[in-house]
Design a binder for these strands. Sequence first.
RNA 1: GGUGCCAUAGCUCAGUUGGUAGAGCAAUGGACUGAAAAUCCAUGUGUCCCUGGUUCAAAUCCAGGUGGCACCA
Length: 301
Amino acid sequence: MNTLIVVLGPTGVGKSDISIQLANYFSTDIISADSRQFFRELSIGTAVPNKEDLKSVCHHFIQSRSIHDYYNVSEYETEAIELINQLFKIKNPLILTGGSMLYIDTICKGIDDIPTVTPEIRTEVISWYQENGLEALRQRLFALDPEYHGIVDLNNPKRLLHAVEICQMTGKTFTSFRKNTVRERPFRIIKIGLNQDREILYQRINERVGRMMGEGLLEEAKSVYQYKHLNSLNTVGYKELFSYFDGNCTLEEAVDLIRRNSRKYARKQLAWFRRDGEISWFEPTRIQEIIAFIEQKLKRS
RNA sequence: GGUGCCAUAGCUCAGUUGGUAGAGCAAUGGACUGAAAAUCCAUGUGUCCCUGGUUCAAAUCCAGGUGGCACCA
């Protein structure tokens, strides 16, 4: 049976390094599950692997899109699963790595079939919300889909907006699309989680931000500043610098904020991964242990 | 050496006329189905610098001490 090795962990823990070592060891490719490394205009701030690494190991879904493209997790699922199935014809195991929790879960378990919202509907619902406010949005959802209204976080506008969009567009309830069915994949999945002492992780994150600045993150952010409204640029490392360009803070404050938001992101990732009982955790320095663990699992099939 | 100001949460500081303390930041936990590096929710016991004194009651008033800052010698 084919095997997908999923390498996951908080930002800055060293997923890329480990993945590249594993890819070399197993002579295979890496598929990215990183919702920001997709974008070719962003490389320093998203910490894409360096050129030599990209040359030595074949990476997929790295810088394959533009920040101007609309993209979502469902499209990613379709494309990535198709690619994985293709690659399994010639390579096994394959490696999936990245920090985007929802994207990883989508590859492992699938996601319900919900229609993609058209730009017209999205614009309409958002502007309606901006005019009428959160309470009105809640009421609109209650009228369209009382069941979802009962379970959704009523303080979270994005959740409410999406449900309303779907109801509005399809004439059906959002609930009717939410089946929560786990899709069986035709391959086995081994989840390798990387984590380390919180203090060391934070130190690594802080240092990495400094390194990014040294590599020219400021210039990179400047080059996309005019598109700052794009969702793809609502990203740690960029939004803080945009705020500096707007004159809302000093450069030093912006860089501090990047560090802080990166740390928060790491914590959020860990919170998500904590719920997943299928992950085997390792220190990022223990590459030999990780290889031995995988070898043992592979042998058992 | 003299005078003045300051000392409260990891940090920066609030604390009104005495009634045993609370903001921001940091930190931490949680949620999560097509915007996910997004979005949302929750969490504050700390010798109120120390020792005495006044008082029913002191972070708050008084005295002394210690440390810091400023100014004058």
